[in-house]
Design a protein around this nucleic acid. Structure first.
Length: 308
DNA sequence: AATCATGTCAACCGCCTAAGG
DNA sequence: GCCTTAGGCGGTTGACATGAT
């Protein structure tokens, strides 16, 4: 006897979501909030499994998602958190506002893993690959290099600490800060016990110049226009924030940052409020929604945000 | 221009865990 | 304490995009 399926899959649709399905799901959740995913497909008129709906909403339709490539800082955080937490993507994602576990997992598998391997670092153990197999060689590492490496890590720690405080200033982060701190402490401890032939400068350069796309966060995230903006294609943070708040969806917590006018990194949803107009307006024609949905879909936002 | 190889990522699958009865 | 169920998580797959030949 196998486990019962999460839902009756007979007649249920699988595969990529269509614009129409997205629209139904968004409208339903905006009107009813997130509750009982099992019931959502029926109530929303979708031929999907509840799990599928939850996944679609959580990973792609949620308004608080940030899209586009991970910034250097985010990538560093992912690497460090992965060193601490392993493949617990949801935990890692919880420290990166606007990022989903799936997104981070994919980015890890497609980008960071390769990058680390290229640098001679085992993406699983976060230790230099060569030290595992070539212990004697590591003992010959010059003391000077070791010192240099420690300096680099101090800088990295400072950098990351700044990043952390910029990204999330919640109370939970205080705990995280200690985690980060201990993380680097542990990393240092590791380095004391293991020396490696790889060049730390190369490592840092790898992150900053050669490997990571040179995209600053402000280039990825759309700047908020002044409140008096007359732009038709983009809206202010405060506007979108108000919109969401005004809707007062049950069981949905809007990140407090949306209220912070100084925070201009909301990303996707403050970028184009007209998209939301399409969503909340049932009269919006399908063609408009199609274009919106396409922008939500694969490559859409990243490309748009990056101005490609 | 056509074909093949490789990369990316959205979505699914199955297992685990917590909550409720 | 046991059973059932829903939600959540991580691993994996496969379709599509892009680059190379």
């Amino acid at each position: 006897m196998g486990r019962q399926p999460c839902c009756d899959k007979v007649g249920l649709k699988k595969g990529p979501w269509t614009a129409e399905e997205d629209k139904k799901l968004i409208n339903f959740i905006l009107n009813n909030g997130q509750c009982c995913w099992r019931a959502v497909p029926k109530l929303a008129g979708l031929l999907r499994c509840g799990k599928s709906c939850r996944l679609r909403w959580t990973n792609y339709l949620r308004p608080d998602l940030k899209r586009g490539l991970l910034s250097q800082c985010e990538e560093k955080m992912v690497i460090d958190l992965h060193a601490q937490l392993g493949n617990r993507w949801s935990k890692i994602a919880s420290h990166l506002p606007g990022r989903t576990d799936n997104e981070i997992k994919n980015h890890w598998n497609t980008h960071i893993k390769k990058k680390l391997k290229k640098m001679g670092i085992d993406p699983i153990t976060h230790k230099p690959i060569s030290t595992v197999t070539d212990e004697p060689q590591t003992q010959q590492q010059p003391e000077q290099l070791q010192h240099q490496k420690e300096e680099e890590q101090k800088q990295q720690q400072a950098s990351l600490t700044d990043t952390v405080s910029e990204i999330d200033q919640s109370k939970e982060l205080e705990t995280e800060a200690s985690l980060q701190s201990s993380s680097f402490t542990e990393a240092k401890e590791e380095d004391k016990s293991m020396t490696s032939p790889f060049d730390p400068m190369e490592l840092m350069n790898g992150f900053c110049i050669d490997e990571v796309p040179i995209i600053e966060p402000h280039e990825i995230l759309v700047q908020c226009a002044p409140s008096s903006s007359t732009s038709t294609s983009s809206s202010t943070c405060s506007n979108s924030s108000n919109l969401f708040q005004d809707l007062q969806f049950p069981d949905f917590e809007w990140p407090c940052d949306y209220n912070n006018s100084s925070n201009n990194s909301m990303g996707l949803w403050n970028d184009d409020l007209s998209s939301w107009d399409l969503l909340i307006n049932d009269d919006g024609d399908t063609a408009d929604f199609q274009s919106f949905s396409e922008s939500v879909s694969k490559n859409g936002f990243g490309s748009r945000i990056l101005g490609i």
